[in-house]
Design a protein around this nucleic acid. Sequence first.
DNA 1: CGGCGGAAATCAGTATACGGATTTCTGCGG
DNA 2: CCGCAGAAATCCGTATACTGATTTCCGCCG
Lengths: 230, 230
Amino acid sequence: MDKPSQNLVETIYSDLRLRLQRSAVSPADRLVDMEIAASYGISRMPAREALLRLVSEGYLVGTTRGFAVRELSLEDISGLFEVRRQLEPRAAASAARDMTPDVETALTVAIGRIEQTLSAGDIPGLLAANVDFRNTWLRAVTNPHMAATISRFMDYFQSVRLGTFADPTVAARYIDGLSAIHKAFLAHDPLAVHDRMTLFMFAAEEAYLSVRRGQLEEAETVRPIRRRRK
Amino acid sequence: MDKPSQNLVETIYSDLRLRLQRSAVSPADRLVDMEIAASYGISRMPAREALLRLVSEGYLVGTTRGFAVRELSLEDISGLFEVRRQLEPRAAASAARDMTPDVETALTVAIGRIEQTLSAGDIPGLLAANVDFRNTWLRAVTNPHMAATISRFMDYFQSVRLGTFADPTVAARYIDGLSAIHKAFLAHDPLAVHDRMTLFMFAAEEAYLSVRRGQLEEAETVRPIRRRRK
DNA sequence: CGGCGGAAATCAGTATACGGATTTCTGCGG
DNA sequence: CCGCAGAAATCCGTATACTGATTTCCGCCG
């Protein structure tokens, strides 16, 4: 969201955030300040501060050995979606009202890319296109506090998302929902956008819950994951 | 929210956050890491990290000389209240549904203290009682993500709040709104709580806007406040 | 072959140090 | 008395260093 900035912490923070958004960090990975620092050729402190910031925002958790992406419990997912349900339909509706033509075309492009990557079975591409779509309508949300909050809540789900699209049935329904939202945007109908987004929220919640349930019972057996502090 | 914790950054962060909640830091004040560090008898880094975290959360802004409390523009206030309107009525309603008896009595105590401090003209006490009231019902919100988000949005307004209660008319209406919410809580009526909270949100937004407008035009004349970064 | 215990390694937290940008202070000249 | 240039002070950003807690490694003993 911010420009390059000649500030190291900001740079590292953005890079890491991007990697998290793209699910480029697995929950098994450990992010260590010294490694990151070395890869940028800088000292530990900026890397450490960026990591700490991601922890305070809830994207990472500190373990006794490095930082790891936070894994969402089923309660987390429900709770996060309760908030999303309150915000996103309203925000999307206001975006539909205030949208400029270029946003409109960008949305269409994004939807096209989503359908294309879906039929090609290109999961990473689908993921990226999906992020594009949401960022595009979010750009038309004039209230920056609203947009930032929504963006933040969406980003919590990146560790689950890959799995969401693995099941073709789920993926198809997901895309159908997006497509309906897109149509409502094109019709410049804020109320329809609101309703469609509401429906979409429930479908998405179910999808994430089901995926996460699967992940959890699969890992039922072995799973240490130690936190910090006595 | 968190316990003492044997972590310096956390300690300082909580202390500072508390001071901000209580409006104990004026916008004219400058928070400097070395000063804070000295007052705790520690080094710069933990103090600095706590300040940086407050900046990233939007409570402080960096200036060329120390950190200062963020001042809300009129647009900020409107934007923040748009989000609050989406969240707080819903959250309060769920709190009304899930509330335990001890929360109920705590709410009554808080309301009593609010009325008492109001008639006594004890503004700081009123401020504290007000914070108590909101934290009390927020405790009954079972969704931690919802509660944390709301708490965060409320805390943005501490720099304006003192002024809100200076005008007796505004204060009286504010308290009336709270009182109506309290009654709805006692009646265990989630819908009434939702409605009352919605009304209250609009009244509060108006109050803050009016106070802030006054502050802004008063300061119209002299006002350097330099930010950082070219 | 397994487990047990101590040494070595890893890494977060904190402290101290330095450089550079900007502001504030100071004193001289007008 | 005011302005203006240079000096001093302030304070952020970053680097490096130390410490203690925890984990991992490794070899000895049963």
